[in-house]
């Protein structure tokens, strides 16, 4: 029976062309990330995230057989894009994952217990939400110091509020549903009601939200890198690569490849997660199942 259900959903998933495209892109990125050492062998295996210096000239070099995506800031763009895929996954998974956990804890405490706990937690959430994200993240990164891990900490600290709000709202709504009352009237314990009735009906929107955020977080990280707050120069990160082109903004014809290749990678990465997120939403909502 369960197998039928999975079969049906898989079939439905593959009937949806955009979902298939999203999954295809995602698999493509995962393969690149997994096989990065083979696609772009690192010069220093102990420090593969460091893009090797390709030339001593400061001028950007257009794509050539030796450097298929060209060279910017003395670095090979191809190598940066390939190894940057790993960085993108790392940023996405860690930031989206940890901030979702914080959000779920804050949101469910608020939603279940209500009263003053709800008041206090939601006011804290409001304070965090009222800070402009980029400014706050910049300030925190400046305080903590430069580096990708610092950027990630800043993004987690200022990135959990959406999930907290979402899960609290869902719990408040589910708490009023008649099936929860019916379970109470049957004498089911509170802990079981939460486990069997509340969580299954609240957690899936969060999973969808997290998968959607995976992509957009990479853009945020890139924006911080572009502003000079991200990884140190030479680190294999799409945002860092883009920030090299800052010096050549007026001479697009000379440095177009430094924007196009990392840019396309980033756009496709975001698109992949969004499409997969959309498909997950359709699958997780049994009311939409045909």
């Amino acid at each position: 029976m369960l197998r039928d259900e999975i079969k049906k959903n898989t079939k439905k998933f593959f009937k949806n062309p955009t979902a298939v495209l999203g999954l295809f892109l995602l698999v493509f990125f995962i393969i690149i990330a997994l096989f990065a050492p083979l696609i772009a062998p690192p010069k220093d295996p102990n420090n593969p995230y460091r893009i090797p210096i390709a030339t001593w000239s400061l001028e950007p070099k257009p794509p050539s057989p030796e450097h298929p995506f060209g060279v910017i800031g003395q670095r090979d763009i191809f190598y940066g894009v390939i190894w940057g895929t790993r960085t993108a996954f790392r940023i996405g998974l860690i930031v989206a994952g940890i901030s979702a956990i914080i959000g779920i804890i804050m949101g469910s405490l608020s939603g279940y217990f209500g009263g003053w706990i709800d008041e206090v937690l939601m006011r804290i959430t409001d304070i965090f939400m009222s800070l402009p994200f980029l400014v706050a993240a910049m300030v925190l990164t400046t305080v903590l110091g430069k580096g990708l891990d610092k950027v990630m900490i800043a993004m987690i600290v200022f990135g959990w509020m959406g999930t907290a709000r979402l899960i609290r709202g869902n719990i408040l709504q589910v708490k009023e549903e008649q099936y929860v009352l019916a379970a109470k009237a049957l004498g089911v314990r509170d802990s079981l009601i939460i486990l069997k009735h509340v969580i299954p009906n609240t957690i899936f929107p969060v999973i969808v939200q997290v998968s959607m955020r995976m992509g957009s977080l990479v853009i945020t990280a890139a924006a911080l890198s572009f502003l000079g707050l991200g990884a140190e120069p030479g680190y294999a990160d799409w945002g860092t690569l883009l920030s090299y082109s800052r010096n050549w903004l007026t001479q697009f014809d000379k440095a177009w490849f430094s924007i196009v290749y990392p840019g396309v990678a980033m756009v496709l990465f975001v698109l992949a997660w969004n499409l997969v997120g959309d498909a997950l939403r359709d699958i997780f909502d049994p009311r939409l199942r045909g």
Partner: peptide
């Protein structure tokens, strides 16, 4: 108890 709303009274999952 039997409720009014046949939609919200059964857990959809």
């Amino acid at each position: 108890i039997i409720f009014q709303d046949p939609y919200s009274s059964l857990n959809p999952r």
